[in-house]
Design a protein around this nucleic acid. Structure first.
Lengths: 380, 380
DNA sequence: CGGCTTGTCTTCGATTTCGAAGGAAGTTGG
DNA sequence: CCAACTTCCTTCGAAATCGAAGACAAGCCG
């Protein structure tokens, strides 16, 4: 009976379970090092966790010069997480086991303009479909989480002043989800989720900036290994004023915001003015790959503007890496223009070991991040 | 015999001592809440710490509705810290007890241009003078720390690529100090020390940006209550490109750095060109207070430029407060120009509860910060 | 004043954790 | 191949920690 009841989240067992689930530890020895507990205590608790079916021993790890460790994993039967990443016109949805490994990921069309009530109902229905189709019998759902394309107040789980989500302002999304499933629920900005997901793919990097370049421009920040939320808007770079000859007024009311020049939406509207039909950021990438000069020039300029904004932040934050994801990140000229700007203008101390590259987690980064953060809520 | 021997830094006693020393806890009950230990265990360990003369009970605190707590303090006889803040032409030096309370603070002229060897010898001599004059007999020195006006590699305690400290590059300052006194030693950038010092004066603020506006422009960042060091240059804002009509080349080799327009040094050189004699940032403040229009306009412009740079960082980091210190911070027009720029251009979510004001810890902020950080080294 | 509530601190048996010692299972290097 | 070393994991008595119960000391309030 693998933990149909509540999970052991308190005390030493909970600590050890968290370390394994978060992917920080894979063996009793590692658990001892990271938890600060004595090796003997770790063995005792791990034996109990295996006994209750939450952990499983799975083969041997690689030796570090001595006896090989016996690898520990979270049992796939310990529970499931249902996660989603809401976009403007479609959503990715997934089921993960408690170690964050996806069982199934789907993309379905939806429309957040229908408002929060309808969208949450739709999402709940989609989750139930997926559970019916893919969840092994007897494995309980432990938590639900979703990303939204707007700022979220970390204290309340409410969406706050979202520019692309009319009708959602101050709606208690997390509360509703929690009530519907009777489970811990998580709501977080989509770029923040991407950052949390990437963080697991960049071991050794304590400080990370993860840029989401899609229709909008978002950024998530990992500081000291943890997501930095600030007041819910942390990581915002879209409304930074950029140096420009012309003058464009942004939806926020100010002039010359980065978003008005370098977001996917801005690029698409310029292309449309030139009579080139594009519907999504991926179409822009396709134009660039086809060598359409107008598109390439636009994308390169967007990269330069983004890079100039990043220089300020790189000097200030000194990240270990900048990760670029989102629909536009597949466009090479964007990446190279960002790299050029950052390496040219930043302090040598800040760029000496700085890596700038595209996502390692791919399109599921946000779902993985939702799993990672949701785990903290489930095991707490 | 109040702990002439080594301090108990390991295990529960160490944890409790740290909590009291850092100012987080003042009673057994608070210690129990913050340490996670059972109240009974806390009482046992506290009794031992009092027995060994490290803690003292000092009167009663204020009731929170029930019995009044018996206040705990670090014994003034538990030990001393010697701390310094090196500037270009003068240094502040102080002796603190282990709870960070200053016994004595002095300002002495010195010249870091004499190079690291001479300066460290000078500092050691000054510390020994002060100890002889002010240290109660039998109270041991537990650690030594200093701030320097340049970046410091957090891993090695070496000064790295300092623009205003020729001869210091890569010099192992911390190592030398530690060797000279045979004690834990700390070396840190001066703005970072200011930030660590201010952090203790802003309880409830998890994320803080502390600007040091003096001859140069520095900034220290507190994220989640801890100093964010990055690669040693974190918090740098002096080499951000600003929007400007003219074009000035900075010492870093790039054009139009903030430092070249808004630092105290830059203001002084402009005033000098106009035939107005000034020798230190305080003289600029005096001119502003005397209503000299050239000085006021210059300072206000500097504030605007600094504020525009801060807008980017406020949107990104979402600090709870921006604290402005350093020699120029006494100039009202600087503060109000910074406020105007930040409140005008930042996202409402980021500025809603943002406080922008001058230092609460005053001119000793850096010394207090050195004490705070040094404590971690001493109790570790 | 005397209950009532809230919060602080101690006592003591039950439980958990520690740490030293040792066995198990590898790697490294003659 | 064997000896020396490393790392991983378990065993078992000693020591620290927990937590429930209660004494103690206030503030609150009629």
């Amino acid at each position: 009976m693998p933990g149909k009841e509540t999970l052991p989240v308190r005390g030493a067992q909970g600590d050890l379970l968290r370390l394994v689930a978060a992917g920080h530890a894979e063996s009793r020895a590692e658990l001892a090092r990271l938890s600060g507990l004595a090796a003997s205590s770790v063995s005792l608790r791990v034996e109990e966790l295996i006994g209750s079916g939450l952990l499983v021993e799975e083969g041997a790890g690689t030796s570090r010069g001595g006896r090989r460790p016996r690898r520990l994993r979270l049992s796939p039967r310990a529970g499931l997480l249902a996660v989603a990443d809401l976009g403007a016109h479609h959503a990715r949805l997934g089921l993960l086991d408690l170690s964050g490994t996806p069982l199934v990921v789907e993309e379905r069309p939806c429309d957040i303009m229908d408002g929060p009530e309808a969208t949450i109902d739709w999402m709940a229905g989609a989750f139930e479909d997926m559970l019916a189709a893919h969840a092994p019998p007897g494995v309980p759902l432990r938590g639900v989480g979703t990303g939204v394309p707007g700022p979220v107040d970390p204290a309340t789980g409410r969406v706050v002043a979202p520019s692309r989500m009319p009708g959602w302002n101050n709606f208690p999304v997390a509360e509703r989800l929690a009530a519907h499933f009777g489970l811990p629920a998580l709501v977080e900005n989509d770029a923040n989720l991407m950052a949390a997901g990437e963080a697991r793919a960049w071991p050794g990097c304590e400080t990370l900036m993860v840029l989401k370049a899609g229709s909008g421009i978002g950024c998530g920040v990992i500081v000291n290994g943890a997501l930095h939320r600030g007041r819910g808007a942390a990581g915002d770079i879209s409304h930074v004023r950029v140096r420009s000859d012309s003058s464009v007024t942004c939806s926020c009311g100010h002039d010359d915001c980065l978003e008005a020049y370098a977001s996917g939406a801005a690029l698409m509207s310029v292309l449309a003015e030139q009579g080139i039909e594009v519907r999504r950021p991926a179409d822009v990438v396709a134009l660039v790959e086809d060598g359409v000069p107008e598109a390439t020039a636009l994308v390169r300029n967007a990269g330069r503007l983004i890079g100039e904004v990043l220089t300020v932040l790189v000097n200030f934050v000194n990240p270990d890496a900048i990760v670029i994801g989102g629909g536009l990140s597949a466009a090479e000229p964007l990446i190279s223009a960002i790299r050029a700007a950052v390496y040219e203008r930043c302090l040598p101390l800040a760029t000496r070991d700085l890596e700038i590259s595209t996502t390692r987690s791919g399109p599921d980064a946000a779902l993985l991040g939702a799993g990672s953060l949701l785990l903290d809520a489930v095991l707490a």
